[in-house]
């Protein structure tokens, strides 16, 4: 066990293990920091969603808390004008590429994007940016769930469990840049791939990209 250290987050003194990543320390102590891509058990942080910015005394620029090992005496602020500006831009960027319309989404009220919006007082619609929505076909080939790539935020949670927890490796990130997406080998429907339809990916999806068919039907009925 590494040694215990004391740090201050938003004026609150917190005990933590040296070297632990700040994001988890904050979350474990009831301090919310927005995040989508962070995986507690992963060997290396992805640091791809760019939502978990904080400011640390002595560091010139905001840093991602998922990559920051805590050190004794660290003084952290989760809300500063610079942090808020970065988070709100990153959030709106993600929304600009996400099919909106929470009313029709099975993840309505349990979606991480909604949590972030609520916690940080952000709007769930585009205010400054242009919609970059992708019109990708929905894959409803699996028995129990649906994959809607237009709702995916590329957090990589599903890819990670598929490779590291389940050990199947049916899905991965393919292509590059704006074309990057989660897909199977050859971009065939999940049912035609080596996917075992274990459903673990659906459990970890923070948004409405991977959803259970029953939820989807319920949503359709209520809507």
């Amino acid at each position: 066990m590494s040694k215990e250290v004391k740090i201050i987050i938003d004026g609150k003194e917190i005990k933590a293990r040296e070297g632990e990543k700040l994001l988890w320390v904050a979350l474990d102590n009831g301090i919310y920091i927005p995040h989508l891509c962070a995986k507690r058990d992963a060997e290396k942080p992805d640091a791809s969603c760019r939502l978990c910015f904080v400011e640390v005394e002595g560091m010139p620029n905001p840093v991602t808390s998922c990559t920051l090992p805590v050190k004794d005496g660290m003084v952290v602020r989760t809300r500063t004008p610079r942090v808020d500006r970065l988070v709100s831009t990153a959030f709106e960027l993600l929304l600009s590429n996400h099919r909106l319309g929470c009313g029709k989404c099975p993840k309505n009220r349990s979606c991480e994007l909604q949590t972030i919006a609520k916690e940080r007082g952000l709007k769930l619609k585009l205010t400054r940016l242009r919609p970059l929505e992708r019109d990708l076909p929905v894959d409803d080939s699996p028995q129990g769930f649906i994959y809607d790539p237009s709702r995916c935020v590329l957090c990589g949670q599903c890819v990670w469990v598929c490779h590291n927890k389940v050990g199947v490796g049916a899905i991965g990130f393919v292509r590059r840049g704006i074309e990057r997406k989660m897909a199977t080998f050859g971009e065939v429907p999940l049912a035609e791939s080596r996917c075992t339809q274990c459903g673990e990916c659906v459990e970890v999806c923070p948004v409405g990209a991977l959803t259970k068919k029953e939820e989807d039907e319920k949503q359709a009925e209520s809507a």
């Binding site: 490779h163 199947v168 490796g169 049916a170 899905i171 991965g172 990130f173 393919v174 292509r175 590059r176 897909a183 199977t184 080998f185 050859g186 791939s193 080596r194």
Partner: peptide, 21 residues
């Protein structure tokens, strides 16, 4: 690609990720 994945012993989607990157 499938054959190469099998030889190296990695999921075929990993080969596809590289090939499309």
């Amino acid at each position: 690609m499938q054959k190469i994945a099998e030889k190296i012993g990695i999921p075929e989607v990993d080969v596809y990720s590289v090939a499309t990157f």
